[in-house]
Amino acid sequence: MQNNLQELSLILNEMSTDEGTTFEAVFVDDEILEVTCSNNDEFSIHVVMTEKQILTVTPLFSADEVPKEKVNELNSLLLRVSPAVPLSSVGLQDNNYILFGAMSVNTTIENISHELEVQAENTIDVLETISPLLK
C-alpha cells in the first residue's frame, strides 16, 4: 500500500493533465500523501490508501468555524449541494467538514489525476456556495 502511494507521488510530481494541471505531492506521514494541484494551491488534498481504495480528502473547514445558529442551514445546504458536485462528496471527518473522493486501487493514473484536479476545482465551488454561512 505504502509502496503504491510512493509510486503515485513520483508519477504525480512529474505529470501534467490534459487541462494543464500539475501536482505537488509530499508525504506528511508514512501513510498520508498531501497533494497540491496547480488549479487550486490553497486547499490541498490528503491521499490515503486501503487495500482496496484510494481516498482523497480535502479539509474544508472546522465545525468551529460555523456559527451555532447556522449549523443546520449549512448542513442541509451541503447535503443538497453534494449530489451536484462531480466525482466528490461532502462529509464530516471528526470535527472537520471535508470534500472527499474514493477510487479503486486499480484506477489508472489518468483517472486519479483527473479526479484530483476536479476535486481541487470542486473545493472552490463548494466553498463559494457555503462561505456566507461561515464565521
Partner: peptide, 11 residues
Amino acid sequence: EQLQKTTASIN
C-alpha cells in the same frame, strides 16, 4: 481508520 489518520494532520 485511514480517514482518521488524516484528521491529525488536518487539525
